[in-house]
Design a protein around this nucleic acid. Sequence first.
DNA 1: GTCTATAACGTGATAGAC
DNA 2: GTCTATCACGTTATAGAC
Lengths: 210, 210
Amino acid sequence: MPSKNIKKKPDINTELKIKSAARVVFQKKGYAATRTRDIAEEAQVNLALITYYFRSKEKLFQLIMVETLANFFQKLGLLFNDEASTLEEKVQLIAEKYTDLLLEDPEIPLFIMSEIRSHGAAVLKNIPVAGNIMQSVFMKQYKEAVQKGKIIQMEPIHFLINLLGLVVFPFVNSPTIKKVGDLTNRQFEQLMQERKKLIPVWINAMCHAR
Amino acid sequence: MPSKNIKKKPDINTELKIKSAARVVFQKKGYAATRTRDIAEEAQVNLALITYYFRSKEKLFQLIMVETLANFFQKLGLLFNDEASTLEEKVQLIAEKYTDLLLEDPEIPLFIMSEIRSHGAAVLKNIPVAGNIMQSVFMKQYKEAVQKGKIIQMEPIHFLINLLGLVVFPFVNSPTIKKVGDLTNRQFEQLMQERKKLIPVWINAMCHAR
DNA sequence: GTCTATAACGTGATAGAC
DNA sequence: GTCTATCACGTTATAGAC
């Protein structure tokens, strides 16, 4: 019988401490601007332990990158493939849950975009959901609605870009938006909360544009 | 009388060659991932000449950054403050000209966002238009139209986020979009051309959502 | 597993010949 | 102005004691 799962704090474990710290620092500064010393300090751990557990900065980065992408797209995939909801409900679901995800972890989209830019799009190769979004339940429902004449023709890829753009864009641009709109962090978050309800309305209107 | 303006090719000038190369490399890889050797190679110029003309990598970067921001926001500012056009016309103008700008120089938005992330939003301090967008002719016309009941109430900041997001988002995400939609570069550009005409229609629909 | 000390390397910057 | 050679430094990675 299993007997050693009495451990409570996960980050008492040095390896996990380093991994968490690496995630934070890499996501904030990007690969090139991150020094292993930053990670060691963030983890409050001796510098040499990074090599001991992960062999190299590059290896550690790959690990974080793959985990981040897989986790992120997996969550998106769940929303896009929910079987129980209608198209309209799924738009609401995506606007709400995706926004919640970004409110919790606002750095992720810009992190992913930046690293794709410098490391190349090859990082997306092995991520399952990234390539299958066009075949998701959500997109099938969308195409069906168009076919039935319930909403006007809009190329599925435009529809997807628009929905994701309305959700994600303010997060990747938050510094500029805060500056332009003279917003505190609190006010910015409030704005994102509002958008959770507004985006479905806007998307609906776009789908019925003349 | 001035007599020495017979020079033709601008990039025969070493200083300009370096500056152009630096702009290309910095915008593609970001400050931290760029080595001065990359710039020298791109400019096909000896490494030492970078220091000779620009003192340091940091100084050269600052120059490129300020020029890029000033030029970019100045062009945006012209669109937002055009006196001759109506609100509807300005939406069309922005969708079209801003898209053209990005088709020509697709790396700029992600470059700006990334460097703001690592260098801090302070880089926006001295850029005139960045802070004044909310007081532009365009935004004044928008608020007026809301007041007159011509379009439904939507917070000006939401309106701005939506318009800019619809234009810019596909460009900062082009690798993912090309992958997801299985698009060639040519097809992607075609898609952006379509959006120039569609975005005004969508924006209009959003402004009349129930 | 964790630490200190240091090796090995890459990169920004400079000196000095031409 | 341009080049070669090299320095100075910061960073990643490792050796070896504990």
